[in-house]
Every structure is written in C-alpha cells, then in structure tokens.
Simulated scan of single mutants.
Amino acid sequence: MNSLVARTARIPKLNRFGWLMGLYAENHARLARLFAPADLAAGHYLSDIGDGLALRVDVIEQHRYTTQLRLTYAMPDPLTGEPDPSAYLRLYHDTRQLEATHCYVGRRWQDVIGMYPPPAELISHRMRMNTFLGKWLEYLAERGHGVATLHPQREMPIEIQKTA
C-alpha cells in the first residue's frame, strides 16, 4: 500500500501556467499544420472553401524568431464595422508556441481586465483566449481550410485597412 502512495506522490501536478504553455504549443502545431505561417511573406491571404465564410490571414510582420498574424473572417461586425471574430497572434518559431495576444479589435487584455490585474486573472484571461483559438483552429481544419486553400490578396478591403 505504501508503494502505491509513494508512486502517485511523485507524479508532478500541472499548474495553470504550465497548462497555458501546453496550450500555446498545441496551438502552434495546429496553425503550422493549417497554414505553415513561418513560410509566408508579410501580406494578406484569403482561404475560401466555398462556404460563404472566407478566412483572412494577415501576416503583419515576419521576423527571424517571431511572426505576427491576424486571423479573421472577411465580414464586419454590424456595430463597429471591424472584422469579427478577429484574433491577433504571435508565433514563436524557436519555442514552437503560438499566443493569442488579443481577440477583438481594440480589446487588448488591458481593456478587458485593467492595467494591473492579479497574475491569476491575467493567466485566466489568456487561457480563455487561447482555448478559443485552439477551438477555432480545429474548426477551420475540419471545414477544410489549409495551405491549399490559402491565396495571396493584392489589396485589403477598406474596413480591414483601418485596423491593420
């Protein structure tokens, strides 16, 4: 009986921060399989699978160790006129992680939870955003989006230019 208790006591527990880092790694793998963004030049891309919801992938900046992107549907929010849903992403090539930095135009974490949130609240907010991102990426893959459906766009529509 003591050996059973001793074996279970050695299993490390995953804290919320560790869970978040694992989520970043899973989302990196999902996005890399979908669109291989590390290989894309800065610019605007459209993935259209013929369902009426074209997905826009904007590669905002491409650096040696990071890529900044935005995923959104090419449809505006009726209240703000901004693309919605919209997720701004930071892809870390060296650590193979993908972080959703904010999920709505003008709604960075500071706008949602304030300038000085407790660390637990900040981690909870990031977990919600990145869980949303993971589910969205799974949905996109199930619908058929991917490298084969992604095509460069010459110009952005006006409503998207305002926020880029």
Score class of each variant (00 low, 15 high):
Y65F: 13
Y104W: 06
T95M: 02
D39W: 02
A41E: 15
V5K: 09
I49S: 03
M1N: 03
T67R: 11
T8L: 09
E138V: 10
N130K: 04
L14G: 00
H145D: 03
L91N: 03
E159H: 15
A25R: 15
L71K: 01
N15I: 02
R64V: 13
W109L: 03
H125D: 06
R10A: 05
A164D: 07
E155K: 14
K162C: 04
G144P: 09
H151Y: 00
H102P: 03
D58N: 09
P12I: 00
P78K: 01
T131F: 11
G50S: 09
L71F: 04
L69C: 05
I123A: 06
H145S: 07
V5W: 03
A42I: 07
L40T: 08
R90M: 12
P117G: 07
E61S: 13
V5I: 12
E26I: 11
V105K: 06
L79F: 00
E155D: 15
M75A: 04
L4S: 07
W136H: 11
E99D: 13
H145F: 08
D84G: 01
M75F: 04
R154E: 09
L4Y: 05
A141H: 12
D111T: 04
L69S: 02
A41C: 06
R108F: 06
L89F: 04
E121C: 00
R64K: 11
T95R: 11
M156D: 01
G146Q: 09
R96E: 15
E26M: 12
A100N: 12
L14R: 14
A87G: 00
Q110T: 12
R30P: 00
Y92Q: 07
L71H: 01
E99N: 06
M115H: 08
P12D: 04
A9D: 11
G22F: 10
A9K: 14
A38N: 12
A38R: 13
G134S: 08
T8I: 07
H63S: 11
L34E: 07
L79D: 14
R107L: 15
E121S: 01
Q153V: 10
D48A: 10
N15Y: 05
V112P: 04
Q110Y: 04
A6V: 06
T80G: 03
A141G: 10
H93T: 02
G52N: 08
